[in-house]
């Protein structure tokens, strides 16, 4: 086993690293802001709000991310409506398609996390807000979302890690992320153990960072309800 093939290709791994740490936060950002309204809709009792969001989360949580990425990347390019209109300037770019599928995927999971937190909100809190004369929007903004989001921190931390790991799939649609770099090194220099071991260690470090960040967040926002 020789790790010299890794050192000789450190630039490739660095490029891959940059792609991963750009793609994942961007997808999480879009996913988060899609999930906020979606989770409120999903938790509502109005069937016209509830069922469309439920179908959305059911599809994206019920199928593998890999299949979604392929469906968006190769699947949609089959149609002239995508290929010959303004849409193509978006779908032409593998990076943007990857970002789109990752964002929708994490939006679906995040929606369910937030919805769970909203539904578990103690009824008394909402009643108290009503009694104070708050309107529905104010209640949402000042009571429901702040409490629900805080309670979601631990499960959202898991989702962030899942997204980091899921992002390795973009290496299958010509994007060179950390896994993509490892695959190139493996296929060119035939050192699978060295290549994937290195990738694994990088992901492990990133995972530890995320765990650390969320520990701090929990400390800051959840210490008042800790037993």
């Amino acid at each position: 086993m020789s790790f010299s093939i890794i050192f000789d290709n450190w630039k490739l791994f660095l490029e891959g690293f940059v792609v991963t740490i750009q793609l994942v936060p961007l997808a999480l950002f879009f996913g988060f802001f899609m999930a906020l309204p979606l989770s409120v809709m999903r938790a509502s009792s109005n069937p016209f709000l509830k069922w469309p969001t439920y179908s959305f989360t059911y599809f994206f949580r019920g199928t593998p991310l890999l299949v979604q990425v392929y469906l968006f990347y190769y699947g949609l390019a089959q149609f002239s409506i995508v290929k010959e209109t303004i849409l193509w300037s978006f779908f032409k770019d593998a990076y943007k398609v990857g970002l789109l599928s990752f964002s929708l995927n994490t939006a679906a999971y995040t929606t369910e996390i937030f919805r769970g937190a909203i539904e578990r909100l103690p009824l008394g809190q909402i009643e108290a807000a009503k009694a104070c004369g708050m309107g529905p929007l104010t209640r949402l903004r000042r009571i429901i979302l702040p409490i629900a989001l805080r309670k979601s921190i631990p499960s959202y931390g898991n989702e962030v890690i899942f997204m980091l790991h899921g992002s390795s799939i973009c290496s299958l649609i010509t994007i060179i992320d950390i896994t993509g770099a490892a695959r190139i090194v493996n296929s060119r220099y035939y050192g699978p153990v060295e290549a994937f071991f290195t990738a694994g260690v990088i992901y492990l470090c990133l995972t530890f960072c995320i765990v650390g960040i969320f520990k701090q967040l929990e400390k800051k926002f959840l210490s008042h309800i800790r037993r």
């Binding site: 390795s168 699978p192 153990v193």
Partner: peptide
Amino acid sequence: GIPDLVMMLL
């Protein structure tokens, strides 16, 4: 801490 895909290839 390691993605399934990387683990699988490894």
